[in-house]
Design a protein around this nucleic acid. Structure first.
Lengths: 381, 381
DNA sequence: AATTACTTTGAATCTAGGC
DNA sequence: AGCCTAGATTCAAAGTAAT
C-alpha cells in the first residue's frame, strides 16, 4: 500500500536526504551576501542552516575621547553601525535578525551570539523570548585585555557568548570528546581563556586595522569544533572580516556570510582565500595554554587563610606588621604589600614576602607561603 | 543675615548630616525583615541605603515565589506557551523588587545582582529598563565547580554578577586602590576566581545543607570592600542564610536583610552573631591619591622643596622649564601650571605634571612627585 | 646573532570639583 | 548645566630599535 510505503523509515530518510540536497543546492555556500543581514537572510531557505554565529553591534554608547596615562589616544569604536537611538531601537533590531536566524536554522541547529554587558542582557532576553533554549553562557576571559585607564571600574576583561538550541526539547550537536581532548582530558568549562586578536592575525591595511573588533580565530575554532560537524553549514549575519569563514574553511565546514560594508567583504574574501585547511601543528597552537596558578596575597585574606588583623613577623621577630582588609600590611606608619613593606623595613632593594613574613597557625610559626600552598591545594581543579 | 547663614557650606553640610542621622534612625539596622521582600522594602525610607546586594531566585518555575501580574498563580511549566508565561511572570517579579530597591537606594548608591544564564539576561535587561547604569558585569569563576555529569554541555563553571549605579551620570563608590592592592598591584579584573562555599563555611543542620545556594563569604567580601565604605548600610532582599550580613559585620558595614523562610532567618542570625568584626586598623585599606589630601605645587615652592628658579625637564630632556616664585613654570615664551605647560608643550590634551616634570635633587634625577611625597610625610598630622 | 629596551595597541559606556 | 582647571591613571603582547 502506498501509505505504508510512504511511512517506512527508509522512505522517510530518503525524502529527508532529497530535501536536504535540494536545499543545499539553493544555498549560497562560500559567499558573502551584500546588504542588510535581515534582508540577506530572507533569501536563505527555511530549515537549512546548522549553526548561526552572530557578533552583532554592541551598542557601546561611548562618551568623549579617552586618553591613556601617557597621553596617547585610545582608538575607539565610533563606527555608525554601532549607533542606536535607544534600547528600544536596539531591541527591535535584535528581534528582527533573531527571527530570521530562527527561520533558517534547522530544528537541530544552534545559535551562538557574542556580546558585552552593553548588549548581551538584551540579546539573551530576546533569544529566550524568541523560543531559543539557552544551553550555556560562555565567558571569553581575555588574557590580555585593555586596562581601565582611569581607574574607575574593574578592568573589562571578558566577553560573553550565549549558546542556544531551537527549543527545550530540541537536539543539538555537542562534541564532548573533542572538547575534553582539547582541554587536557578535563571537561571543557564555561570559561575560556584566550588572547585577543592581534599580531599577525589582525588584518591591517596601510598600518591600521581593517575592522575595529576582529575576533580571534581561536574563539571560533572552539565554537565550531564543539557544536558543529564537518560538512555543516555555518551562517554569520555580521560577517565583518570573515573570521567565521576562515575558521569554517580550516575545519571543513561550509559557510555563508552577510556583510554591508564593501571593504570588510573584500578583506574577508581575500583572507578566506588564503586560509589553509587544518594541519596538526597549527591545531596545537590554537589551544589555550594552561597557566601556573598565580595567587595574590589578597586572595588568602578574602578566603580567611590569612584573615585581616593577623600579626606577621619575620623569622627572628625583628620586624612585625599587621594584615589589613585589602591585603596590604601596616607596620607603624609604613604600609605596603607583603613584598614592598618587607623590603623597606629591611632597607633592602627587594624582598620575597611569601618567605619573609611568618604567622602563627595551628600552634606553629610558619611562613605565609604555607598558607598559599594550602589555598592552592584547596582550589585546584 | 539669616540667608547668608543658611547658604554657608558648613550649614549645608550640617543639614545633610542631620537628614542622614534622621533617616538612619528609622532604619532596621542589623535586622532580618520577615515576609516578601517587596513588602519588606516598602517599610524602608527612600534614599537611605548605600548598597543593595541581591541574589534572587532563578528557577523560572517558582511556584509560590511567583504570581502573574494579575495576581493569579503560575502553573507548572510544561510547554512553550507556559514557558513564555513563566518568563513574563519572572520579569514582573524582577521589575517589582528592582523598583523598590531603586527607591530605597541613595542617589550615589549602587546595586549588585548575582545570577546564572537562566535569569541574568532578564534581570540585566530589567535593570537597564529601570534606569540603572551598568558599571561592570563580573564573572565569578568557580575554582571547584560541579562537573557536568552527562557530558551534554560545557561545565557550568561560573556565575555572573552585575554592578550598576543609579544612572549614567550618578556617582558611585569604587575603592580602586584597595582592589589593586588585593590583586598584587594589578588592576582588579572583571573575572574573579573564587572557590565555591563548602567545608567549614557551609552551614549544615543534621548533615544536610541549610540553604541550596549559599554564597561564599569571599565573594561578598570583595563586593563590599570594592564598592562600599565602612559605616555604609547594605541591604539584601534575598538574605537566605545571611552571607551578606556576616561579611558586612566583619567589614564594619551595617546591614539589613529580607527573608521569608523562618529557618533561614534563624540560621542567619545565629551565624552573624558568631561573626567577628575586624578592628579599625585592620579595616583600613590603601587609599588612592584621588582621596588623599591635595598638595598644591606652590606649597613646594614656598617651602623650599622645589625652590623658585629650579630647572625642570621631562625624562628624555626634550622639554625644559623654570620654576617661578608663584609656582608657575616658564619655557621660552610659554607659561603655565605644571600640568598645563606639560600638556601644551607636548601638544597633548592633558598631562600629569607631577610625573612628567623631573628635577635634580641630591645628585639624582627625580620626578617632582618625589618632592611632594617628602612634603606630605613631613607635614602629616 | 642574541639580548634588552623602548614603543605601540586592544569592543571603553573611563575624573572631580569649583564657579 | 556647562565650562574650566587641577591632577590621577595602564596590562599584556607584539613589534621595533638599540646594544
Amino acid at each position: 500500500m502506498a501509505t505504508v510505503l510512504l511511512n517506512t523509515p527508509s522512505r522517510v530518510e530518503e525524502k529527508k536526504r532529497e530535501t536536504k540536497i535540494e536545499v543545499r543546492k539553493d544555498l549560497p555556500i562560500g559567499q558573502i551576501l551584500d546588504g542588510d543581514c535581515i534582508a540577506a537572510m530572507r533569501t536563505i531557505p527555511a530549515n537549512s542552516i546548522d549553526m548561526v554565529f552572530a557578533d552583532p553591534p554592541y551598542n557601546l554608547q561611548l562618551g568623549g575621547d579617552l586618553s591613556r596615562p601617557d597621553g596617547s589616544a585610545v582608538d575607539a569604536v565610533t563606527d555608525d553601525w554601532d549607533k542606536f537611538d535607544s534600547f528600544a531601537a536596539y531591541d527591535a533590531f535584535t528581534k528582527g535578525w533573531l527571527a530570521e536566524a530562527r527561520r533558517i536554522l534547522k530544528p537541530n541547529g544552534s545559535l551562538w551570539v557574542i556580546g558585552s554587558y552593553h548588549n548581551i542582557f538584551r540579546v539573551g532576553t530576546a533569544m529566550q523570548d524568541a523560543g531559543f533554549w539557552v544551553l550555556n553562557d560562555i565567558i571569553w576571559r581575555k588574557s590580555n585585555p585593555m586596562p581601565n585607564f582611569k581607574g574607575t571600574r574593574f578592568t573589562n576583561a571578558h566577553e560573553t557568548l550565549i549558546w542556544a538550541s531551537m527549543g527545550e526539547k530540541a537536539k543539538y550537536t555537542f562534541n564532548y570528546r573533542a572538547m575534553k581532548t582539547l582541554n587536557d582530558e578535563l571537561q571543557m568549562r564555561s570559561d575560556w581563556v584566550l588572547p585577543i586578536c592581534n599580531g599577525q592575525e589582525r588584518l591591517k591595511k596601510g598600518g591600521t586595522k581593517v575592522h575595529p573588533t576582529q575576533k580571534p580565530e581561536s574563539l571560533l575554532y572552539r565554537v565550531m569544533l564543539a557544536t558543529t560537524n564537518p560538512g555543516d553549514v555555518v551562517l554569520d549575519p555580521f560577517f565583518g572580516t570573515g573570521t567565521t569563514g576562515a575558521v569554517a574553511k580550516r575545519l571543513g565546514r561550509d559557510w555563508i556570510g552577510c556583510e554591508r560594508e564593501g571593504n570588510y567583504r573584500e578583506a574577508a574574501l581575500e583572507r578566506i582565500e588564503m586560509a589553509l585547511p587544518l594541519d596538526e601543528s597549527a591545531l596545537k597552537t590554537m589551544q589555550s595554554k594552561r597557566q601556573a596558578p598565580r595567587v595574590a596575597f589578597g586572595s588568602l585574606v578574602e578566603n580567611g587563610y590569612v584573615p585581616a588583623g593577623t600579626k606577621l613577623f619575620d623569622k627572628k621577630r625583628r620586624y612585625s606588621a599587621e594584615v589589613r582588609a585589602d591585603g596590604s600590611l601596616v607596620s607603624g606608619k609604613e604600609t605596603g604589600s607583603i613584598h614592598g613593606l618587607g623590603a623597606s623595613l629591611q632597607g633592602a632593594p627587594s624582598c620575597n614576602g611569601w618567605t619573609f613574613w611568618h604567622m602563627e597557625a595551628g600552634g606553629q610559626v610558619q611562613p605565609i607561603d604555607a598558607q598559599r600552598q594550602l589555598y592552592i591545594l584547596a582550589t585546584e581543579d
